[in-house]
Amino acid sequence: MTTIDIELLSVSKRFGANRIVDNVNLAIPKGKFVSILGPSGCGKTTTLNMIAGFEHPSSGQIRIRGRDQAGVPPEARKIGLVFQNYALFPHMTVAQNVGFGLKMQGRPREEIAYGVSRALKSVHLEDFESRYPKELSGGQQQRVAVARAIAPSPSVLLLDEPLSNLDLKLREAMRIELKEIQQDLGMTFIYVTHDQEEAMAMSDRIIVMQSGAVAQEGAPTEIYDRPRTSFVADFIGKSNILPVSAVLEADQRPRLLLKAAEGAEGVAITAARIQGIDPEDVRFCCIRPEGVRLADAAGALDEPANLLAGTVQKVVNLGAYVEAWILVDGGIILKSMIRSTRLDKVPVGGCVELAIAHSAVLLLGE
């Protein structure tokens, strides 16, 4: 039996002269929570619609559980769908909404009742059968939409930005609930979002799309810790993306010359390793703000580090942390995440010494 639920083989989609999805190859494992992540217009929703059968590929092949889906209509693909607006029927009770798909399939009454009960129990709404959508909170409506999608027992659930209409606190709570539902069901979830925090919080794997193509695919920690391009580094989390003028040394610890502001001298910093990229191909380096530390912080110098002096230009209070913008030699601005308890160490206009571990400097080719 195949362990791959969904395969896309060289799939492209054109609308007129515009290629929206460009030669995408994917293999989505069974029982995993996979997010397709990217900015508006990158092709992620079109990719989801092709998997669902609402759009047909211009070229390439889509397989579901090993079967080619060419000519297979959406209702025959055994896939559940959850949309951004939930699309609940306001005149129907929760039970009637959840059982709607089963009823349309002509299932017996007893089977519909069992499917509704099981689905509502999965989303922790078993006591809400007789309520109407208007009597539910946004989060409860979202769970009803999930229950309706899973009631017919699909093998795959497709979710198109289902949390985007909820407020921040509720979105954060629903992330946890959706992940728990997916784990309890053991079902493959394919989740489309432009929110990198959602993708990082819930996913077993993340597919980052850019301009219709897959920019990078991997586990959340891999995408965050080892981005392959400046686009991925910038889109996933906060980053200092710095242009590199030259690689001065390319031995065990490469020495990089950063591109300086006009009229200023370049700054050289050291990275831990080349990381599988040809020195001649290095165009940027990425330093996460949490990797830019005050030199006097505990543990800041526990490993080889670059030491840079700078002047604090701006401080943004983010609650538990502050984001300090620090001007160093070469006219380069570095953003640093510092605990709010150390706010007195980064007064605007004050001078600070920074420590950037060699391992925190990531080399990028594009």
Results as ranks from 00 to 15, higher is better:
62 I>S: 02
38 G>Y: 01
87 A>V: 14
156 V>F: 04
332 I>K: 07
47 T>V: 10
210 Q>T: 07
317 N>K: 08
213 A>F: 02
91 H>Q: 15
181 I>L: 14
65 R>A: 14
214 V>L: 11
110 E>W: 12
186 G>F: 12
107 R>Q: 12
110 E>N: 10
127 D>E: 14
267 V>F: 04
39 P>Y: 04
219 A>H: 12
350 G>R: 06
176 I>P: 04
151 A>C: 08
260 A>I: 09
87 A>S: 13
217 E>I: 14
358 H>P: 05
245 S>M: 12
4 I>Q: 06
359 S>D: 07
330 G>A: 03
346 V>Y: 03
134 K>T: 07
138 G>I: 15
46 T>F: 03
1 M>I: 13
148 R>F: 13
288 R>T: 13
230 S>K: 10
341 T>Q: 05
111 E>S: 12
324 A>Q: 01
12 S>D: 12
72 V>R: 05
239 S>P: 00
246 A>T: 06
336 S>A: 15
140 Q>M: 14
342 R>W: 03
171 R>S: 05
64 I>M: 11
275 Q>R: 02
39 P>S: 03
72 V>M: 11
176 I>R: 15
117 S>K: 08
11 V>W: 00
344 D>P: 01
336 S>Q: 11
24 V>D: 11
188 T>R: 13
345 K>V: 05
237 G>H: 14
82 V>N: 00
312 V>R: 00
41 G>N: 06
347 P>K: 07
165 N>T: 09
119 A>L: 13
51 I>N: 09
256 L>C: 02
66 G>A: 12
309 A>G: 13
31 G>W: 04
275 Q>M: 09
220 P>C: 11
20 I>D: 04
238 K>C: 01
134 K>M: 07
137 S>W: 03
362 L>Y: 00
321 Y>H: 08
44 K>E: 09
339 R>D: 05
63 R>N: 14
39 P>M: 01
96 Q>N: 11
6 I>P: 01
186 G>V: 12
158 L>M: 05
265 E>I: 14
59 S>P: 02
248 L>K: 02
140 Q>C: 13
253 R>Y: 09
43 G>M: 10
69 Q>H: 06
285 C>Y: 06
64 I>K: 04
284 F>L: 03
213 A>K: 15
91 H>A: 11
170 L>P: 07
160 D>S: 09
117 S>T: 15
248 L>G: 02
301 L>A: 04
255 R>C: 10
5 D>H: 08
359 S>A: 14
1 M>Y: 09
135 E>T: 07
243 P>N: 02
311 T>F: 01
5 D>Y: 03
88 L>C: 14
141 Q>C: 15
93 T>L: 09
295 A>R: 04
132 Y>D: 00
181 I>H: 07
355 A>F: 00
193 T>A: 00
162 P>I: 09
324 A>S: 05
344 D>C: 03
123 V>P: 01
196 Q>S: 07
292 V>E: 05
252 Q>N: 08
